[in-house]
């Protein structure tokens, strides 16, 4: 087994979950209605918890403890895709990002539940079941608001158009892609992307929203190699502010 490849894979997934989990938590107290406030807060708790479990797995492979990994790295040491670090914007953008991201994440964990690295396969089966509630939530609201009023449709359409190049950045390939596929640790970003496009199309076709021409889109990449937008470092500063006051404190 190629341990470097495995670690790179675990870091990018865990970082995606942590950063989007943090963004989701920013909706706590600000949701457009109480149910959505609770939904985004619950999804935040799921995602941060899932990232913690993956950081624990990294610790068994010789990496530092989860708190140090989560709170003491700078932006250029994070492997999340840029999509998850973008500010929440208005509800329509957060909903579209949630839909695009969680659809991919559900497929990713489904693929990983077949991983040759058994601890990853075990936890992926579990996470995949939890994510079902996230994708059901996203699909329900996208279908409803994507066919509701002129305003809801045009808002979702604008967010879909602006999020899509970033969404394609989720599938930025790792330098270890071939290793991961040949060692059956993970089926690869390309296979994931193909399945994702089908799922996205299946939901959007039930709405009045239009998908962009996939071929004309230029993916926004760089996140996987630590090249982030201006938005990640301020997020990390805020997330780690309390921890950094006294990193040795026992909580």
């Amino acid at each position: 087994m190629n341990e470097t490849a495995l670690k790179e894979l675990l870091y990018k997934i865990a970082d995606d979950q942590l950063i989007l989990g943090h963004r989701n938590s920013e909706w706590t107290g600000f949701g457009p209605l109480l149910e959505e406030d609770i939904a985004f807060s619950s999804m935040a708790q799921d995602k941060v918890g899932q990232s913690h479990a993956l950081y624990q797995m990294l610790q068994t492979l010789g990496e530092k403890d989860p708190d140090t990994v989560a709170f003491m790295r700078n932006a250029d040491q994070f492997h999340n895709c840029i999509l998850v670090e973008l500010p929440n914007g208005e509800y329509d953008f957060s909903l579209i990002r949630h839909f695009l991201y969680d659809t991919a994440e559900a497929i990713r964990f489904e693929m990983l539940s077949e991983s040759s690295y058994q601890p990853l396969a075990d936890i992926s089966k579990k996470i995949r079941a939890e994510l079902r509630y996230h994708t059901l939530h996203a699909n329900t609201w996208v279908k409803q608001l994507g066919s509701a009023t002129e305003e809801s449709i045009s808002r979702l359409q604008r967010s879909l158009d602006s999020a899509m190049p970033y969404a394609l950045g989720m599938f930025e390939e790792s330098p270890f892609e071939k290793d991961l596929i040949s060692s059956k640790i993970f089926g690869g970003e390309q296979a994931l992307k193909e399945r994702w496009i089908k799922k996205i199309e299946a939901v959007i076709s039930q709405t009045q929203l239009r998908l962009p021409d996939w071929k004309a889109l230029q993916p926004v990449t760089g996140g996987r190699t630590g090249k982030h937008s201006e938005y990640l470092q301020p997020l990390l500063d805020e997330m780690s502010e309390v921890f950094k006051i006294d990193p040795t404190a026992e909580w």
Partner: peptide
């Protein structure tokens, strides 16, 4: 059903 998310996960 009011919300698939509640007071605990």
């Amino acid at each position: 059903l009011r919300n698939t998310f509640g007071p605990t996960l």
